[in-house]
């Protein structure tokens, strides 16, 4: 199975309704973009830091979220220093960091299944022209098939390695795609045979 990024816990942040967390996230991100000033950014920083403390998360969790974007931050910082001054440079980088951390707080404290359930609940209230069952089927199927396609990827790679083709991306991708399309036909027939449609 694919592991999600969720960190187990029973704090108030973990137990809060996913919809409420998404709403707060959007409120914070909209606020820092519309009211584009230092005091608002400082307030957002305090709120997000408080959220991490309340959720019992360690600095390592925050660090892991920021690590992939550090290189971009460095380029941004240099560009802004060159274009403007240290104030704007640090403002832009801090704003990114706060927003990324706020959004990661949602991901770290909410199970994927909770979000999917919330999405499905929202779908059931969607207007009739929304193909609810089809969306639900597609989401469930992708989550189910990611591990299987990853396993197929390793199969194909081993087979091509035996033929000395493991350095060719085309020789890896073509069998993977064609195999998946053939599987898709079988799966579609199986679903129709159970008259899910």
């Amino acid at each position: 199975m694919i592991t999600d990024l969720y960190v187990r816990g029973a704090t108030i942040v973990h137990r809060a309704h996913p919809g409420l967390k998404i709403l707060l996230l959007f409120a914070i991100s909209t606020l820092v973009f519309i009211v584009d000033t230092w005091p608002v950014l400082a307030l957002a920083t305090v709120l997000v830091a408080g959220g991490y403390l309340l959720a019992g998360l360690k600095p390592a969790h925050a660090w892991r979220a920021l690590k992939p974007v550090l290189a971009i931050f460095a380029i941004l910082l240099i560009a802004q220093l060159y274009l403007a001054d240290i104030r704007l440079a640090s403002y832009v980088v801090l704003r990114f960091a706060v927003l990324i951390l706020a959004a990661t707080l949602l991901t770290l404290t909410t199970k994927v299944s909770e979000l999917v359930d919330g999405l499905m609940a929202g779908l059931s209230r969607a207007p009739g022209w929304v193909p609810r069952e089809k969306i639900a089927l597609a989401i469930a199927m992708t989550i189910r098939f990611i591990p299987r396609i990853r396993a197929q990827f390793h199969d194909v790679r081993d087979a091509q390695r035996a033929r000395g083709l493991d350095r060719s991306i085309v020789a890896l991708l073509v069998p993977l795609v064609v195999r998946t399309l053939k599987d898709a036909d079988d799966i579609a027939r199986a679903i129709e045979a159970r008259s899910v449609d």
Binding site: K134, L137, A138, I139, M141, T142, F145, I146, R148, I149, L176, V177, T180, L181, D183, A184, D185, I187, A188, I191
Partner: peptide, 10 residues
């Protein structure tokens, strides 16, 4: 739907 779901997985 199956094509869409499986390609998302690819």
């Amino acid at each position: 739907i199956v094509y869409i779901a499986l390609f998302a997985a690819i």
